[in-house]
Simulated assay, not measured.
Amino acid sequence: MNSLSISEARKLVLLSQGLPAKPQKGSAYDKSLLAFKRLGYLQIDTISVVQRAHHHTLWSRNPDYQPQHLDQLVKDKLAFEYWSHAASYLPMDDYRFSLPRKLAIRSGAQNHWFKKDPKLMDSVLKRIASGGPLMAKDFESKLAKRTGWESKPTKQALEMLYMQGDLMIAERRNFHKVYDLTERVIPSHIDTSVPTEQEYARFLVLSFLKAHAIGTLNEITYLLKGVKAQVANALSELLESGEVEKIRVTNGEYYVRPESLALLNQRLSRKTANILSPFDNLLIQRSRANSIFNFDYQLECYVPAAKRKFGYFCLPILWDGRLVARADCKVNRKASKLEVLHLFLEHSLKAKDAFLAALEQELQAFATFNQCGGYTIEKTSTTPY
């Protein structure tokens, strides 16, 4: 079994993720498409303290990214919305691999958080079939009781039809979903055959390792229900065929595609700082980020204010091949300023002056991306551990 140092493992992971971004030829839109395909999914998030996560993640890999690119990818039928480990944009070429979950929800083998109302679902579906794409607000539906968390029955019907595959998201208008019949959204050339269990498991393994370089069984099956045994079998078969091999890293054993090891011969930019989204593909699995990058991270917007260590929306910062800082950020739209409420430097950070010079450039670029004229840093500290 081959071995990698933790530094080599980090290099493989970062290069596979397209971080830091390298200069590329082509239009800004083409570069966004390439980054999207490299990642394999983009997690959608509604929090807008700074630019939303699905835009932020692509911008981190393509400095020329514009928020309208994602809408254009959907319009061009190169991307679609569905569930990965969470609500995501997925490559349209991978559409068939969304079918196992859809069919499981349709059959009742996998539960969804809304209960099915077949009569209402049929009525909603017929209205869209005859009248064209609609949003939830286009349906009148009253709640029997309002507590602040529930959604109206027609919204639940739309979501169930979407989750089981009858409807897709044709577009978003002011971030509101527009639902349409699947057959009117999906391109005619896309493979819609249901993958076998073996095909689906192979896809999960190979797509994860392509995007992340190295991975464990638990990481490959992160938040996916009922697939661990299938993926374990697929890994055994892929090991036997030589399409995957095991690699030992300082912190444990991982699976890797042999072709990914060639990335060790490429150069990793260590002078550029990258401000990352909390939902970035690189670190959405917090235990993996801790294991590989020794970066203990929690998004604290869901933590009571009195218990927060780093702030409401603290963004991890990549530099020199490591995660070396975090910044609690907020866009002040009225003042057109990106406010760094608190910058926390990791205790292990060396060459602080070089890092801060790189961060200055990144903060200005991030401010511009957030349609701000500039930025301020209100406080800087070093983490106590």
Results as ranks from 00 to 15, higher is better:
F279V: 10
G18T: 02
R52E: 09
E159F: 06
T383I: 12
L161T: 07
A354M: 11
L349I: 02
I6N: 10
D180Y: 10
S32N: 08
K246Y: 04
R146Q: 14
E183W: 02
R248D: 11
N218A: 14
P118G: 10
R322S: 15
T272S: 13
N251T: 15
K11A: 01
F97I: 06
Y302Q: 11
R267Y: 03
L19Q: 00
L224Y: 12
Y302W: 10
R101K: 13
H56I: 06
S381E: 14
T250D: 14
R38T: 07
H56Q: 12
I186G: 10
D280E: 09
K145T: 06
D122Y: 02
S123C: 06
S84E: 08
L204I: 11
A157V: 04
Y297A: 08
D166Y: 05
Y375V: 02
H212A: 08
D328W: 03
A109T: 11
V249Q: 05
T376I: 12
Q298M: 13
G18H: 01
P63S: 07
R146T: 13
A335Y: 09
M121Q: 15
R326D: 01
R101W: 10
L299R: 02
L158D: 01
E159P: 02
Q24R: 15
G373N: 12
L268F: 03
H176N: 15
G131Y: 04
G131V: 07
L276T: 00
R52A: 07
E159K: 03
E240I: 06
I284L: 13
D353R: 15
A365W: 02
Q364K: 12
V324D: 00
K246D: 08
P91V: 08
R257G: 05
F344P: 00
R267A: 04
